[in-house]
Design a protein around this nucleic acid. Structure first.
Lengths: 262, 262
DNA sequence: TTGCATCTCCTTACGCCATAAACTAACCTG
DNA sequence: CAGGTTAGTTTATGGCGTAAGGAGATGCAA
């Protein structure tokens, strides 16, 4: 489902992303649609039915048009994806308190971004191969940098840190988003799925504890504890991994800061 | 392009993954193919032409058959993907020296896994939503755990660490793999792509340095230094991010170890 | 006012994709 | 040799993105 934009006219892409509308009075029928309306409709489809349901036909239908009508406003599906991506990024918060240190602010940012990804899981499926170069993508990076600047790390190290942090949030959100998507698209919950397979692993792998002692010890094969908590199995794991992982990451950054000062 | 397996018979999936062949003499024509032959052909197609070229038709053609012939051996494309995934994971090394500490071993493991992902980039496109539960997936985890056991971290923390580390390698490889895929599928190199867009960003965003001072400072907009080095622009950045990120991660784990000891 | 260029939006069509259904032909067992 | 089972084919269905061409609306110049 991953598609690449940017094979078209770069100037056209950019002017769409930054919405430099010229308009003026022109011949021909008045446009019944607009880029914004199309992008909004596309976002709505993706939010409601997931990326796999996002087709030109579906977007057109939501606007009471055919698929082909969209091509008057948007060069192709890949560009539409880029527009959706940048527009929805605009929902991210941009202000974080700077008086409690970078650690608190970064924790808040990571939490917000992860929540955002889980709110619009399809965003995770937009290729990160090449930056979209839209205004909101830059804004997101600027926000992160305002927080990380407080570490006082030098530029080249900061670049690396930006990389790990963004990768971490994406990864943390992806685990959950993928699990939810799987549950929705297959109609099988994590629990059902697991209970159907867990005994089979034991059966086919002969003595599992002998073949994979450490995996067995880690308890990935344990059935989910039947808590009052109704959060799905995999998500409970993911939640914990997120907490631990974030701490590891923050400690690592702190170490880098300590090294750069000392 | 992400597809989910596991909507079929779990027992069938498992017996395919663990290759519990019954065979015996049966009526009907001799099978001209085998699950292994199909999986190998599919891996070859994915390696050579990428995941987007992996269709049942393509695999069948490579074996001199039609697409439909494969369905005798494999229930559907999603299951085939799982089989490809687990089989190719078998190429990963499993032994790492334990006499130089976990840090050295983990560094080597992360490097190997990243190299592996870049060798078979399509692996990154197999959904991680639910574990495949094949033998080689367990082996990979077991290998990582043999290394991480040396940290002496308690089980629950270790689970978190496993999560961050695997997410980190995936992320680090994805950046590069996506970039290469984009270059291949669009026929536009990173450099060409960048030179076409860089000036346009300045043009459309009015005073870029005023709007995004920190982004400008970070120099993401700098044109790539024209080194003797012929590694593409984005990959050079990625390489650096990988090094810095890994160090941050290792330091973070070390902090966790120190905390658990003290 | 007319004619035309231009624009929106539609219909149609092409070539992909996964896979369901029905068929042919090979083969083992009774 | 008959019957049932299996491997592999052909054909068809309903999806996808989007190229091509046409119909009707609109603003402007003559």
């Amino acid at each position: 489902m991953v598609v690449f934009a940017g094979q078209g006219d770069p100037r056209r892409s950019m002017s769409l992303l930054w919405r430099s509308a010229e308009a003026g009075s022109r011949p021909g029928p008045k446009p019944g649609l607009s880029v914004d309306a199309i992008v909004d409709a596309a976002i709505a489809v993706a939010d409601e039915q997931g990326m796999s349901a996002l087709s030109m036909r579906a977007v057109g239908e939501r606007l009471g048009r055919t698929a082909m009508a969209l091509y008057t406003y948007v060069p192709n599906k890949a560009e539409l994806l880029d527009l959706m991506y940048d527009k929805v990024l605009g929902q991210l918060p941009t202000e974080y308190p700077s008086d409690q240190g970078w650690r608190a602010a970064l924790t808040a940012w990571v939490g917000d971004v992860r929540a955002f990804y889980l709110w619009h899981p399809w965003v995770l499926q937009v290729s990160q191969a090449r930056p979209v170069l839209g205004p909101n993508e830059f804004t997101m990076l600027e926000t992160l940098l305002r927080i990380l600047r407080q570490t006082g790390l030098e530029r080249s190290v900061l670049r690396g840190v930006v990389g790990v942090v963004t990768q971490f949030v994406r990864g943390a959100a992806e685990v959950i988003a993928d699990a939810r998507r799987a549950a929705r698209e297959t109609g099988v919950s994590d629990e059902e799925w697991w209970y159907a397979r867990s005994p089979l692993v034991e059966e086919f792998s002969a003595p599992f504890e002998r073949q994979f002692p450490l995996v067995a010890w880690l308890g990935e094969l344990d059935p989910p504890a039947a808590d009052d908590d109704c959060t799905p199995y995999l998500e409970r794991h993911a939640e914990w991994n997120f907490t631990v992982g974030l701490e590891v990451l923050l400690d690592g950054i702190e170490a880098a800061v300590a090294r750069s000062v000392g």
